[in-house]
């Protein structure tokens, strides 16, 4: 019996006069891969940032693994320990090597012993295919390599859920594949993932469910293969026609 690990209910986020999120509701069960697509400014990034408490929301409810997500409460730190996030621009720490990037949080946040953190960092970097690059600085790595380091860094905290905010949008087409492969591997390993992306093939191959978001609401959701072939809502059709 797979449990619901993430639940978003009627999420509203008002930013000044604008409604960035206008009543978003969905659930994610354990080991599920949910892909979110849609035009820019539709609220997809904001939604992710609300889930791990990076942004506060105006009303609604987010529950993660029995924890209530409230960016203004100290409990939000517990949420952040369980959620890993991958950013469009990698956001690696430029003054640290790949291995130091990965071992920093387990060492200083979780307080694990240095040797263990080092070992785990090397294992994770190996897992994403970067064992040769442990001593390189982000400035010496390609975009695809940096993003893979970012994934290893997030994995080091043993998250229950991984959020991906357009992980390949800033990459050269040649390096997109290497990152998507790592993500596919994560998915088949049973990681619960919420992925905002324009990579519709990824959605088709790996996604369990796809959500189409526009103007702060979920317009349509369903099985990736079905929705991408036969969108029912006209807005979805319009978007997919422009993209495919």
């Amino acid at each position: 019996m797979t449990e619901c690990i993430l639940s978003v209910e009627n999420l509203v986020k008002r930013y000044g006069a604008q409604d960035v999120l206008n009543g978003v509701s969905f659930q994610v069960i354990e080991r599920e891969v949910v892909v979110i697509i849609g035009p820019s400014g539709g609220g997809k990034s904001t939604l992710l940032r609300c889930i791990n408490g990076l942004e506060a929301f105006t009303s609604g409810r987010i529950r993660l693994d029995q924890l209530e997500v409230d960016a203004s409460e100290p409990s939000v730190w517990n949420v952040r320990r369980k959620v890993g996030m991958i950013f469009q621009h990698f956001n690696l720490f430029p003054h640290l090597t790949a291995r130091q990037n990965v071992e920093l949080a387990p060492r200083r946040v979780l307080g694990l012993p240095a040797a263990e953190c080092r070992q785990r960092a090397e294992t994770l970097l190996s897992r994403v295919g970067l064992e040769q690059f442990v001593h390189r600085y982000p400035g010496q790595l390609s975009g695809g390599q940096q993003q893979r380091v970012a994934i290893a860094r997030a994995l080091a905290m043993h998250p229950s859920v991984m959020l991906f905010d357009e992980p390949t949008s800033a990459l050269d087409p040649e390096t997109v594949g290497e990152v998507l492969n790592v993500m596919k591997e994560l998915a088949s390993g049973g990681m619960t993932m919420v992925v905002v992306t324009h990579e519709l093939n990824f959605a088709r191959e790996v996604g369990d469910r796809i959500l189409f978001m526009d103007k702060g609401v979920i317009v349509e959701e369903g099985n990736p293969r079905e929705l991408l072939l036969n969108p029912r809502n006209p807005r979805t059709q319009q978007f997919l026609q422009a993209v495919l």
């Binding site: 730190w77 949080a105 860094r153």
Partner: peptide
């Protein structure tokens, strides 16, 4: 702010 966002997402206070 990206650096702060990354650190925060790793639960660094």
């Amino acid at each position: 702010s990206d650096q702060w966002a990354a650190a925060r997402s790793l639960a660094m206070n």
